[in-house]
Design a protein around this nucleic acid. Structure first.
Lengths: 224, 224
DNA sequence: AGTAACTGACACTATGCAGTGTCAAATGTA
DNA sequence: TACATTTGACACTGCATAGTGTCAGTTACT
């Protein structure tokens, strides 16, 4: 009935700009706001008790814009997880960079940074280390994949230092995963007890565990 | 209006027995059924997606009896967790008993039993190692308490074997928690990948990590 | 000024679930 | 047989939330 197009060609009367910004820019800004809100709320209250309405409210937007960027709350969870993980990883790489050729210092700097990050960004840490593990669904695969790659990297990095009679790849991978477990588990406990324990104790304890693994594997510089 | 008590004293016409069993017995049986169903469903589908109706259906009972034994679903979760944990602990103690005076064999037997249990009872394992960690709420305190006691025990058990120049209690506690993290984390990954990895590889890898810790601490029998 | 795209507030529908209530049939006791 | 208790099936209410729709007001372009 209501023909919006007259006989002539469609006359463009609006370029898409708004508030001085292109449509795509505004869209990206909204997405980022939602992501930030998602990380904060999911990390603070948990995924299960974070509603889409709450995220929108926190972001200062309405549901309409949520569904513009995500199809459902699970997708927000996955993207929030990705963003937080990337941030943690980058911060580790940054502090570790100066110690490329001193593996002991490298490990210590890396460990210290993990705990520092967790203390500084508890919401992100909870999201990475707690919520991600629990939620079934799509995230399980995302998590498993990025995690597997990380372990492979760790093994590849360690392997050149091993003596010939070292353990096989399978055992090595188990040890790498175990090492990751140490860190994640300690962070979980630390978060749960409101960071009461001094960070140095955590770093020292973890370092000794890693030191033991280095010894056990006969890595030069770690043996006695 | 409707006076059920006549002028005389209330006449007892029913003892409470039913199906040949006392009321308390039947009640306990129902509770057990619900607990079993809860462990199965929470472990399989996750706490968030397990409804009370589903638990009742699985148990072959109706909601009425759910609220007879538990005030809400969280209480079922806590009790399910308690029951599953107790079972795991007992099974470990059982297989470890013969090796009281050979700590290396004891550790190996214990580790082997943990992984065996996980493989044999994936639902219980998921409940203990995944759901319990993720669910906020009351369970957090229950978990934290029983867990803290376990770590204290581990430290107390290890301490007599340490040389005088060993680390302080705080560091030791961190290491004990880290060791627990190794196991839990490896189990989580194993469950998530459907037990593809051979159990022996897991045991061997974990054993080497523990071996490294023993060395690092200078425990006799673990050093080289 | 007039038109089109954009924005925000909010109404609306549908769904799933917790927790409570009702009732008739089954089981036991006197 | 008469009556009390126990049981199971299910109806009912209330609430939170996902996802969609409406509409008036705002901003930009011609």
């Amino acid at each position: 009935m209501k023909s919006r197009q007259s006989g002539t060609a469609i006359t463009r009367q609006h370029s898409g700009k708004y508030a001085g910004k292109a449509a795509s820019t505004r869209q990206a800004e909204r997405r980022q706001k939602l992501l930030t809100a998602g990380i904060k709320l999911i990390g603070r209250e948990g995924y299960a008790s974070t509603s889409i309405d709450a995220v929108c409210s926190e972001a200062g937007l309405t549901k309409r814009y949520f569904y513009e960027s995500f199809t459902n709350s699970e997708e927000l969870l996955i993207e929030s997880y990705r963003a937080a993980t990337r941030e943690l990883m980058n911060s580790i790489l940054e502090v570790a960079a100066p110690y490329r050729n001193d593996s002991r210092k490298l490990v210590r700097a890396g460990l210290h940074q993990v705990f520092t990050f967790v203390q500084k960004h508890p919401d992100k840490a909870r999201l990475i280390m707690i919520e991600a593990m629990s939620v079934r669904s799509q995230l399980g695969r995302v998590y498993g994949k990025s995690y597997g790659e990380f372990v492979d990297l760790l093994v590849a990095f360690t392997k050149p230092f091993l003596p010939d009679d070292g353990p096989g790849d399978a055992i090595l991978a188990v040890m790498a995963r175990g090492a990751t477990g140490v860190i994640i588990h300690l962070c979980q406990g630390w978060i749960a007890t409101d960071f009461k324990q001094p960070i140095e104790e955590l770093v020292n304890g973890t370092e000794r565990i890693f030191g033991g693994m280095g010894r056990e594997l006969g890595i030069p510089g770690w043996a006695d």
